[in-house]
Design a protein around this nucleic acid. Structure first.
Lengths: 220, 220
DNA sequence: TATGTTTTTTAGATTTGTCTAAATTATATT
DNA sequence: AATATAATTTAGACAAATCTAAAAAACATA
C-alpha cells in the first residue's frame, strides 16, 4: 500500500510522540507538525478509516500495529538516507535532516534495501539513532543523558535528543559530535549547568537544557 | 523557486516533446502524461501565468527560457539518479526509470551537485542520454545508424529500427542491446558489412541490412 | 457540583490538480 | 466556400489537504 507524503508524515510524528508518551493528543501532534488542530482531526479520521490508527474521538490515539509498521519503515528510510548523505556525499550531520525529510517518501522498497546493503547495513544514523532493519526490527541502545553521567567517568557521545537546527548548530560550534569522548568535570546545582572536558579540547560549559539532550555510553 | 511534482512533470514532458517537434500540442502532451486534454489546458494556463511557458490558446506552445532551465534541471536530476542506481546500487538499466521518476523531484540543489561529484561527473546516463551539467549545459548526442558512425568513435546503442522478432533474435544472439557501448573497427566497401567491437566482448561482424537498423548516440 | 477554561471536533471555505460533458476554434474534405 | 471532423478550451464538479470560526466535550477548580 502506498500513502501520501502527508499521511506518512503524520504516521512518523505519531510514532515518535508515542515512543515518549504512550498516548498522543491532537494538540501535541499539531505542534509537532506545525499545523492546526483542526487539520490534525481531519487526518486522524482518514488514518482511522484506513486502520492505521486506534482513535476514539476526544480520547487520544496511537498507531495500530499496521500503522506502526508503516511508520518504522519511514524512519528506516529517513535514517538510511541520512547515513548516505553524511558518509558518502560528505554532508555535515547538521544539514541532512531536511533533505532526508524528502527522500524518506521515495517508495521503492528495493531501492532502500539496496541502499542498506551498499552502506553495509549501518546500525545507527549520524545522530546516533538506531536504524530499523528490513523487517522493521529496531535495536534500542542503552544510554544516559549528561545530567546523569557520574562525575569523572569517561564516556562517548552516542545520540542527540533534540535535533533541531539550533541544537545542532550549538553542538557543531562547541565541537561536540557523535563519538566525542568526554567526562563531566563539575556540576553546578545552582542552575544544573555542567562543565565538560572533551578529549583533546579545552573545558567547556553547557546548560541543563543542552546536557539533557546529549546522550552517552560508558562502561559500567 | 520550487514547483510541484506535477508541474515538474509537465515541464519535463514538454521539454522532451519540443526537442522532437518544435511546437507541442495539447493532445501530444496529454498522451505523454497519460492524462486528459482538459487537464493539460488547465495546467498550461498555470505554467503561462508563472512565465514558464509561451502559450497562445489554440495555437500550440513551448517552454520559455526560464521553463527550459527548470526542465533541464529536472532532466539532470533524473539522469544522475539513474546513473547512481545502476553504477552504485547495481540496478539493471531497465529497472531504474520509475525510481528516478520519484527521485527527480527531490529539491536540494546541493544534494544533486554533491551526487554529481560523488559519481565523478558522468556525461551520460545508463541509457546513453547526456546528463546536463550544473549550469544546465547539455551536450547534444546525435543519433545515427551504424553505417554513418565514424570509425573508432565510442557510441551507445540508442534504438532499433526494424523491431521484428527476427531482428531481435539476431541482436540477442550477438549480445547487442539498448545501451551497449561499441565502436566500429572496420567497414568493408565490398558489401557494406561492418566489424564492431562491443565493450567487454569479442569483435563481431554485421551486414549492411543489420547496420542500417541499429541507431547509436555519441558526443560531438 | 457548577462553572470557567482548555482541548477537540465540526462546519464550511480554499487551493491544487484532476475529471466529464459541452462549447468553441481550427482543420480537412467535398 | 460550406460543412464535417478533430483538437482545444470552458464550465462545473470532485478529492485531498489544509484553513478559520464556531460548537461540543473534557478538564480543572473554586
Amino acid at each position: 500500500m502506498k500513502y501520501s507524503s502527508s499521511k506518512e508524515n503524520y504516521l512518523k510524528s505519531i510514532f515518535h510522540l508515542q515512543e515518549e508518551d504512550g498516548m498522543v493528543t491532537t494538540n501535541q501532534l499539531a505542534g509537532a507538525l506545525q499545523t492546526r488542530p483542526a487539520s490534525v482531526t481531519d487526518m486522524l479520521k482518514k488514518l482511522k478509516s484506513q486502520k492505521l490508527l486506534l482513535y476514539e474521538k476526544y480520547k487520544g490515539f496511537k498507531l495500530s500495529p499496521e500503522g506502526k509498521k508503516v511508520a518504522i519503515h519511514i524512519v528506516r528510510k529517513h535514517r538510511l538516507w541520512e547515513f548516505f548523505l553524511v558518509n558518502k556525499l560528505n554532508f555535515g550531520w547538521d544539514e541532512v535532516h531536511e533533505i532526508a525529510e524528502e527522500l524518506e517518501h521515495i517508495s521503492s522498497k528495493k531501492l532502500i534495501d539496496r541502499l542498506d546493503a551498499y552502506l553495509e547495513f549501518p546500525k545507527t544514523d549520524p545522530h546516533g539513532d538506531p536504524i530499523p532493519d528490513s523487517n522493521g526490527r529496531l535495536t534500542i541502545a542503552r544510554q544516559v543523558d549528561l545530567l546523569n553521567l557520574p562525575l569523572h567517568k569517561l564516556a562517548e557521545v552516542s545520540s542527540i535528543g533534540d535535533q533541531s537546527a539550533e541544537m545542532l548548530e550549538l553542538l557543531s560550534h562547541k565541537n561536540i559530535q557523535l563519538g566525542s569522548k568526554l567526562e563531566v568535570k563539575k556540576k553546578f546545582t545552582f542552575d544544573n549547568s555542567i562543565e565538560l572536558k572533551i578529549k583533546n579540547q579545552p573545558t567547556i560549559t553547557v546548560s541543563e537544557h543542552v546536557a539533557k539532550n546529549i546522550f552517552v555510553k560508558y562502561d559500567e
